[in-house]
Simulated scan of single mutants.
Amino acid sequence: MIGILIITHEAIGDAYRGLAQHFFPGDAPANVKILGVTQEQQHEEIIGRTQTLIQELNCHDGVLVMTDIFGATPCNAARKLVREGRVAMLTGLNAPMMVKAIQYSPAAADLTAFTQSVKAAAINGILDITTPPDESC
């Protein structure tokens, strides 16, 4: 099992928590934690809280940390905790990424392959639609 840690700017974390509950009714899976970072929090505090959450996940196959924006505070804190084979990170969090990660993480055992699979879901979930639908169907 791979743990999932979502770290975002404060209210975005709450929105993703609600979205997770929509797709996965009931309590959040035990291998999923969400941290919303506030403007008042110091960088070291965020790193400490992130370390604690990674330890609480206690997933022997590793932890995938997903953040909202590359280069922003949640990302910068999480990036310091990446450890090859133990903690990986993806940025640019979107709904397809989150759903794929939560759905398949309980059965996943290869952190690198799982990270690439979740990244592909994020990218494939972005479509450019520039013409109206065909009304003849």
Rank of each mutant, 00 (worst) to 15 (best):
A120C: 02
P29D: 08
E10R: 05
L90S: 11
F70G: 00
A121C: 06
R79G: 03
T38H: 07
T38W: 07
I2N: 14
I12N: 02
K80C: 10
R49M: 12
V32A: 08
L111N: 09
C59R: 13
Y104G: 03
A77R: 07
T52S: 13
Q51M: 14
D110A: 14
I102P: 04
P133I: 10
A113V: 03
C137R: 10
L5S: 01
P106H: 13
S136Q: 11
Y16F: 15
C75N: 13
Q39I: 02
T8M: 02
L57N: 08
V99M: 11
A108R: 05
L57H: 09
F70P: 01
Q103R: 14
P74C: 13
A78H: 03
L111C: 08
T38D: 05
G36I: 03
L53K: 08
G3P: 02
A77E: 02
F23T: 02
A109H: 12
D27W: 03
I46R: 05
A108G: 07
V65K: 03
G48M: 06
Q41E: 13
L93Q: 08
N124G: 13
H60T: 05
I54S: 09
A88Y: 01
H22R: 14
S136W: 11
A107T: 06
T131A: 15
I54K: 09
K119E: 09
T67G: 06
D128G: 06
V65H: 00
M89D: 10
N76P: 05
S117Y: 14
G13R: 00
G62Q: 05
I129V: 15
G36K: 06
A30M: 06
I54Q: 07
